[in-house]
Amino acid sequence: MVAILAKGDGDADETPARRSANYWLGRYGVEIRTALTRRFGPDQDGVDDAIQSALLKFCRLDDRDDIADPRAFLFVMARNALRDSIRRANSQKRRWAALSATPTLTTPELTPEEVLMQQEQQQALERALEALPPEARELLRLSRIEGLTYAEISRMTNRSPADISRKIAAALLQLREHLRTVGAQAA
């Protein structure tokens, strides 16, 4: 990773589609790496490998000009790659113990290609999220993005796990209603 970073400056006049993996690494590599390392611990090889594989995959995407926020997009890809590798390594980490104990209950994941195909839906979802109360959004983030269990969120927020579960269900319902209303207006 280090050797590539040296050349990571990239040319400003390149279009996003033509920008190299080195450009994206130079632009967001440190930030994504910091976030992943903080979250998943200092297993640096795993983190660097995940960022590399995310970058390679990202640069092979045909429609990446359509991505409004490449930084977040790359972050999700790197995080998914890291989670996969942790799962594969059958890590003993407490966080994943719950997942491996219930193998049929893994959460569904979208591939980057699928997300790109659903760009309009993603944008509508983004607007629906904006309409949520900040607390609901924060709970969704802690659960969906950070992957915390309700027991963990409960210890951070002093809300009961059942209360968190209810709030998340209500937020999801509100998101769905918002999306349906928008869909109905467009139709």
Partner: peptide
């Protein structure tokens, strides 16, 4: 919906 949430730029 849950799957799409993971990709939200703002979150």
């Amino acid at each position: 919906l849950w799957a799409r949430l993971a990709w939200s730029p703002s979150l």
